[in-house]
Nucleic acid binder design. Structure first.
Lengths: 290, 290
DNA sequence: TCGTCTATGATAAATTTTTCACAATTCTGT
DNA sequence: ACAGAATTGTGAAAAATTTATCATAGACGA
């Protein structure tokens, strides 16, 4: 194995026998809580290990680095790689396609987005949002923009089955002021607003807020201005190798929300689904078999 | 929650709204590969985020640290604590939520679906499908059902920018027979049909095929009957812990297709996008800043 | 016991990094 | 369109960290 693939920890252990007493003492101190201690100033490291400053400098050179900063840079690089690692494990997603194939590049990006987004989500806020959406006492308005209206509609189509009193508004249409007429302060607005934030969406959100409605926002990592007035907001990463953004992460959040809301209202949902099934049967919309 | 128990990542996110543009840019850069980037020199961090050196210093103070070194010290402390903790962090996606939380269960399922689906996709078929969709000589019809029409519309909204001569049909509407009137045998139909396969969709597909059109199908793992007559079909896994199915995997495929098609037609796409931008500017639909 | 050689640490010099003060720019509200 | 405020960047000064030089202590063999 070449040096490039060895971690610094490995390199230290391999060299351990060639080191002098003070250096070994230092080495053990580094490994003690690795890699944090190596990322601080040289002098701190020396003090913690009870060795002199030059000892640290010398050992770092013995390990093959030009100087302490170079040693630190590699430690950071190692940390960076380690944090990324759980995804990188799957080198290629579509077997048989080169790793540079769009299928693999895109999937990588989406998984990355998901990891990032989920890591930053506050589960309590998420639960609170689900509870609001599930609350049948409140009227629910779902709002989407030029592209995001498809997420709004997706959420609408499902929540509609779970509970009554749900509306889907497209902020890009000019019909939305009508919906605000009846807004009460118990109402809940779920708003989707992603890059190329829309003026209409912001206005609608402001008016809804002034009327006392609760606002739940789904936006991207750069955050729609609606964020300022939203009660709860979720920002999903949307960067992919494309001229456009990805809705993948946000869809995941929406689907999870649907599932949670369904659980909160399960008794009702079950009854409503059965009823719906019956009606679908009559329309002959779906195939009965295969 | 006191500052002591908050991670720096949390603190950055909490402050995000109080930050200025450059500072937010920096904040995202720090979170991008956290915590490695914050452990390097201030100047490197500034360069990576494309902001000036004092901007970094100022933000760090806004976060409540006396200076950059103190900020770094706490980052290291955080890393130290995290490494010491024997908890398998990669077990869960949403830190702070129990592994049984819906967020984690759902994400697990979706990632699993993606892995499964991508593993079975034939890249050549995928490329062939993209080439068909990109071919401007052919008329393109995009067809969706009761739920899947949102994917159809999503694809439509994007392909519409990339190339002319695209139509979106909802098989559940009763207007679709009209679209078949002009079908030529060079036409391409992209059809979405997932569980609760729809009678109308099948009929539409059959008629299109009889008229000589090419058919590309997106379906689920159990495969819509349209599969029998489709030229190319992709089946995505859709099982999640919910009473409903997930469109996540299929959305991934659609977005990847959009990106590939965009690349195939890049010269045209670029020109069309610029034109579209100009038109959007005139509508004042989108916000110019923030 | 002495001399030599290596290991170690103290100190000073050099370099890098951080902070500060101020000017240029951008944004906001009238 | 303008004035005032806020934001951002430039360059210099201050502080720190790292590196180099050198002296001392200890180990080992003669």
């Amino acid at each position: 194995m070449s040096d490039a693939t060895l971690t610094i920890s490995d390199r230290i252990q391999r060299k351990l026998d060639d080191l002098t007493r003070a250096e070994r003492q230092l080495a053990h101190s580094i490994l003690e809580n690795y890699p944090a201690s190596g990322l601080g100033p040289l002098s701190t490291l020396a003090r913690d290990a009870n060795v002199s400053v030059p000892t640290v400098a010398r050992m770092v050179q013995k390990l093959g680095f030009k100087g302490y900063p170079e040693f630190q840079a590699e430690l950071r690089e190692e940390l960076r790689a380690k944090v990324k690692n759980p995804i990188a494990k799957h080198d290629t997603w579509a077997d048989g396609a080169p790793s540079g194939h769009m299928l693999n590049r895109f999937t990588d990006a989406v998984i990355n987005n998901i990891r990032h987004t989920l890591g930053q989500i506050d589960p309590d806020a998420f639960d609170a949002a689900c509870a609001l959406v599930a609350d049948q006492e409140r009227r629910l308005c779902i709002v989407g923009g030029r592209i995001t209206h498809i997420l709004a509609e997706y959420l609408f189509l499902h929540v509609q089955v779970i509970r009554p009193n749900v509306t889907h508004i497209q902020s890009t249409s000019n019909a939305w002021p009508h919906y605000l007429l009846d807004t009460k302060n118990s109402d809940v607005f779920v708003i989707f607003d992603m890059r190329r934030y829309e003026n209409n969406t912001l206005k609608l959100a402001q008016m809804a807020q002034e009327l006392g409605a609760k606002i739940i926002l789904f936006t991207d990592q750069w955050r729609s201005p609606v964020h300022q007035i939203a009660d709860i907001s979720f920002s999903g990463r949307i960067v992919v190798p494309s001229a456009w953004d990805s809705l993948g992460t946000t869809l995941l959040l929406v689907e999870t929300m649907i599932s949670s809301v369904q659980n909160l209202n399960w008794d009702d949902t079950k009854a409503r689904m059965e009823e719906l099934e019956g009606m679908f049967d009559q329309t002959k919309l779906f195939r009965k078999f295969t």
